[in-house]
C-alpha cells in the first residue's frame, strides 16, 4: 500500500494534528458562547413575560429547522457582502454558535423545568431572591441533569466544524483534503482524519455516558464520585461507607 508511506513522515502528522487543534479551538469558542447564550435564551423562554417567551421560542423553532450548512454559507457570503471582510474562522464560529444556541436553550429549559417546583419554593422561603434561588438552587440541579444531552450537542457542534472545510476553514478535514490531493491517497488520509475525529468525539460521548443520572444512581448516591463535580445533596449524597457493622 503506497498510500500509507506518506504517514511515515512525522511532519504529515503534525500538519493534521494542527488541523485538529484548529477544530478544537473553534469548537471551544462555540461551546462556551453557545452555553452562555443558550442559558440566557432558556431563561427568556421561561420568563414571566409572554412577548419575551414568544421571541425566544420563535428563535429556537426557526433555527432548529434550518441546516447548519446554510447558516455558514449565509454568514460567510452575506458577511463579506456587508463588508465584514469574510473571515472564515469567525464566520464558522458565528454560524455554529447561532445554531447550537437554539439546541442548548431547549436542553437547559428542559432541565430547569425538570427540577421540582418545591426546590424553588423552598429556596424562596429561605430568603433567596428569585435570581439567587435560580443561580444557587435550581440551576446546579438542572445542569447536573442535562449534562449528557449537553455534551451530545457539543459533539454535534464539533461535527459541524468539519463543514467549515467547505468554505475554506483550515481545520482537520480541509488539511486532509490538501494532503490527499497532493499524494492521491484519499482512502488512507480520510481514514486517519476520521480516526482523529473519532478519538475526540468518542471520548466526549463516553463522558456523556458517565454523567447519565441512571448510571450515577439518582437515589442511592453516585457509585463513583466525580472529583470536579460540585457535591449536591439532591443527587450526590455521600454513600454511607461506615455503616454500623464496620464500627
Amino acid at each position: 500500500m503506497s498510500g500509507w508511506e506518506v504517514f511515515a513522515d512525522p511532519s504529515i502528522w503534525l500538519f493534521l494534528l494542527g488541523g485538529l487543534w484548529v477544530t478544537l479551538q473553534i469548537s471551544a469558542v462555540v461551546i462556551v458562547l453557545s452555553f452562555c447564550l443558550g442559558t440566557l435564551l432558556a431563561l427568556a423562554s421561561i420568563a414571566p413575560w409572554r412577548p419575551v417567551r414568544r421571541v425566544a421560542l420563535t428563535y429556537v423553532h426557526v433555527v432548529r429547522g434550518v441546516p447548519v450548512y446554510l447558516f455558514m454559507l449565509a454568514v460567510y457570503f452575506g458577511g463579506s457582502r456587508l463588508g465584514l471582510k469574510g473571515d472564515v474562522a469567525v464566520s464558522v464560529a458565528v454560524a455554529l454558535t447561532v445554531y447550537t444556541t437554539a439546541y442548548i436553550s431547549e436542553i437547559v429549559r428542559g432541565g430547569v423545568l425538570s427540577v421540582a417546583a418545591g426546590q424553588l419554593e423552598a429556596a424562596r422561603s429561605l430568603g433567596f431572591s428569585p435570581l439567587g434561588a435560580f443561580r444557587y438552587v435550581v440551576f446546579p440541579q438542572a445542569l447536573r441533569a442535562v449534562l449528557p444531552p449537553l455534551i451530545n450537542q457539543y459533539i454535534v457542534a464539533i461535527n459541524g466544524t468539519s463543514i467549515g472545510a467547505v468554505i475554506g476553514l483550515d481545520e482537520l478535514l480541509h488539511r486532509s483534503v490538501i494532503l490527499y490531493n497532493g499524494h492521491q491517497n484519499p482512502i488512507e488520509t480520510l481514514l486517519v482524519a476520521g480516526s482523529m475525529y473519532f478519538v475526540v468525539l468518542f471520548t466526549l460521548s463516553r463522558l456523556a455516558r458517565r454523567f447519565e443520572l441512571s448510571r450515577l444512581g439518582a437515589q442511592s448516591g453516585p457509585r463513583r464520585r466525580i472529583w470536579w463535580m460540585p457535591r449536591l445533596g439532591h443527587f450526590g449524597a455521600e454513600p454511607q461507607s461506615h455503616s454500623v457493622l464496620s464500627r
Binding site: I163, L190, F202
Partner: peptide, 23 residues
C-alpha cells in the same frame, strides 16, 4: 453505531465520493 456516531457525516460523504473511486 459507535464509529458512525463519532465521525462527522461530511467525512463519510467525502470518503464515499472521493476515496472509494480510488478503490
Amino acid at each position: 453505531v459507535e464509529v458512525i456516531r463519532n465521525v462527522p457525516p461530511l467525512v463519510l460523504l467525502y470518503f464515499i465520493f472521493f476515496a472509494l473511486p480510488h478503490a
